[in-house]
Amino acid sequence: MLPNPTLDQLQVFLAVAESGSFSAASRALNRAQSVISYTIANLEAQLEVPLFERSGSRQPKLTEAGTAMLEDARRIVSDLEVMRARVKGLKEGLEAEVAVAISVMVPTDVMVDVLSEFRERFPSVSMRLNVGELGEMIDLVASGISTIGIGGAIVKQDDSLSIERIGHSFMMPVAAPHHPLARLNRPLTLADVREEVQLVVTDSSGHTKGRDFNVLSYKTWRVSDIATKHHLIRGGLGWGGLPASLIYEDLQTGRLVALELEAYEQGEYPIYAIRKISNPPGPAAAWMLEAFRASLSRCPNLEAFKAQLPFNRSKDAIAAE
């Protein structure tokens, strides 16, 4: 017959193993020591292996089988605690899942920090994460796929949505160090960029259809997402604007060069908190919104960001590559 230990037996086993004695476990669990001993004996009978060495020592010592069982028991009891926390949260109004859409314009370190703390604070809440671009954020929230959105390109007001500015980001025109524009090593004019391929992201949502932002070249390659654009620019296949937070390390290491192009508008790109008015966020989603607001408020402006970057390398350094 297959062993069928109970959760109570596993909890008693853990208490003895972690406290180091049957008497300490009895005090921790507020049970008689005889009950603790009886429970462990029943568990060993169920498993048909000894869990503790009792002879020759006043303190019980885990056997090889007991040591192997310890992690399994911890995992099973931990899963039970997660289930209990989830049920408690549901009773108190805590969401079972938070679905969030986050714009590529949100700095990656901010996103990781907020989601890390979210996991610690709400271990019982599942996460469904969509990363979107431009008008996709509006569509994900409006359609109900995402409960909240962080980012967004607000082209027109939607009365069914609550849209609140909570931070900013900005785009920077860049190119690979071996790209012809980077090799000019001087402020660029419109004439310089007109005949060079500019990489542009197409808005799959259709909200910005027919509208181009900061498209200055006559030659354009249109791609579906920022990640592809990023890789192609680093490969020297064109120039274009990328979120500053995404390319910080590239600029520090010289894999990309910031282009001094006055015609390229580098004003702040607003980041919004978006949600449906008819679907107010629960406690976990509301906490996440406030966490993003607090973190984004500490992001540097464009001038402060540029001040962190190394000086442009000389023409000789670029030519030597």
Score class of each variant (00 low, 15 high):
R194Q: 13
E262P: 01
K229T: 08
L261M: 06
V201P: 05
S205Q: 06
H230N: 13
H231S: 15
R234I: 09
R194F: 01
H230A: 10
G240A: 11
G240C: 11
M171P: 00
H179D: 13
R255C: 14
Y248R: 15
P177W: 03
L184P: 03
L184H: 04
V223W: 04
L181F: 04
W221S: 15
G235S: 14
F213G: 08
A227D: 14
L261R: 00
E196I: 07
W239D: 04
G254C: 13
L232Y: 09
T202G: 12
L181C: 08
S245A: 15
P173D: 08
T253W: 00
H179G: 10
P180F: 02
D192F: 02
A175P: 05
T220G: 08
V193K: 01
A244F: 05
H178S: 15
N185D: 11
T253P: 07
P177G: 10
E196N: 06
L251M: 08
S169L: 11
E195L: 12
L259T: 06
N185M: 07
R211Q: 13
W221V: 15
M172P: 01
W221P: 00
N214E: 09
M171H: 01
L216Y: 01
D250E: 12
R255T: 14
L184S: 02
L237N: 06
I247W: 02
F213P: 00
S217Q: 06
N185Y: 04
E196D: 10
F213S: 13
K229G: 13
R194H: 09
Y248M: 14
I226V: 15
G210W: 00
P180W: 05
D225V: 08
M172V: 15
Q252H: 10
D212H: 08
S224Q: 12
M171R: 03
S204T: 13
A244V: 11
I233N: 05
D212I: 03
S169V: 08
V257Y: 02
V197H: 03
P180G: 11
S169A: 15
G238T: 06
R211C: 12
T202N: 11
L256N: 06
L232C: 06
G235D: 12
V174K: 04
